[in-house]
Simulated assay, not measured.
Amino acid sequence: MLHPQARALIDLMAERGVPPTHTLAPPEARALYRDRRAYTQPAAPEVAEVRDLQAAGPHGDIPLRSYRPAGAAPDAVLPVLVYYHGGGWVIGDLDTHDTLCRELANGAGCAVVAVDYRLAPEHRFPAAVDDALAATRWVARHAAELRIDPARLAVGGDSAGGNLAAVVALAARDDTDGGGPLPIVFQLLIYPGVDMRRGHASHQTNGQGYVLTQDTITYFHDHYIDDPAHDADWRASPLLAAGHAGLPPALVITAGYDPLRDEGLDYARALSGAGSRVAHVCFERQIHGFITMGRVLDEANTAVALCAAELRRAFAAPAAR
């Protein structure tokens, strides 16, 4: 059964005539996504420090935002989560996920560096992947300046950002860009999109009526992917990578009323089947995108707390020291 709070949110959006994302041009969709966060997101918690930075990338500079948790000493060397926001590779930015990054920093007691990767259709696949990997390598190289421990570096993201986190973990394992070793100790994959072929059963069963629809998924896909052959590229579909052994431990979160539910589950199975440690938690009564909606969805706060606890555990593990 859909959570009553999720049902109330969906009904309110219909009552107020919130236009579906796929009916808007990308600039309009970005503005709506940014503006509506005030209705669903909790108040942004205070943190010890927020800094806007830039990382050099193959397509130009990449904006970043660095957070240090409340109570952290100025000179403390902290573990770090590099975070890639959701939004179908088309919408979303540092501001849309500012509250979540603050929550994760405080809850996990770690630094968080959010990545404002290039968006489609202005920058199509694999531009977002290139930016995500370049930014992560930049964070590791600038560890001293950022007061972070490069041996305790995690990657994470929601939806499209979960896709990018999974891809960065694969690329780092295989050193596909020739950047050298990039030890990643944990993957935080929040309802990730991992299979561009869009053939899993949940795309049909959850494809209408739960905010993220098949039409909106197609809109995002077609803005990001300009060649159907790219659907089979592991950098677009990490589920289709040749192998999933040797990857960092992961937490995979899915939602019961999400079109992406089944591919997230299959990714967790691929990781565990290859011998990687993975926990999969499905919030059975929730919709795609719920984790940023803690003002109106109580289970969002539960999910944030779970993510923070798993990050703390990963950063405390012997392999992360």
Rank of each mutant, 00 (worst) to 15 (best):
Pro63Cys: 03
Ala56Trp: 08
Pro45Gly: 06
Ala55His: 07
Ser66Cys: 10
Gly57Asn: 13
Gly60Phe: 13
Pro69Trp: 02
Ala72His: 07
Leu81Gln: 08
Ala44Trp: 02
Gly71His: 04
Ile62Asn: 06
Gly86Pro: 11
Val82Ser: 07
Gly87His: 06
Pro58Asn: 15
Glu49Thr: 12
Gly60Thr: 01
Gly87Ile: 02
Tyr84Arg: 07
Val47Ile: 10
Tyr83Val: 02
Leu53Asn: 05
Val50Pro: 08
Leu81His: 05
Asp52Met: 02
Leu64Gly: 04
Val50Asp: 04
His85Tyr: 13
Val47His: 09
Tyr83Lys: 06
Gly87Trp: 03
Pro45Cys: 02
Leu81Met: 04
His59Phe: 01
Gln54Val: 15
Arg68Ala: 09
Pro63Lys: 05
Gln54Leu: 14
Asp52Trp: 04
Pro79Trp: 02
Leu53Lys: 05
Gly71Thr: 02
Ala56Ile: 08
Gly71Tyr: 09
Glu46Tyr: 00
Glu46Ser: 12
Leu81Thr: 08
Val77Phe: 10
Pro74Val: 12
Leu53Phe: 03
Gln54Glu: 15
Leu53Val: 05
Val77Ser: 06
Val77Tyr: 05
Ser66Ile: 00
Pro79Gln: 08
Ala70Lys: 15
Gln54Thr: 15
Leu78Gly: 05
His85Phe: 12
Gly57Leu: 11
Tyr67Cys: 09
Val50Arg: 13
Gly71Ile: 00
Ile62Ala: 11
Tyr67Ser: 06
Pro45Thr: 04
Pro63His: 00
Tyr67Phe: 15
Val47Lys: 08
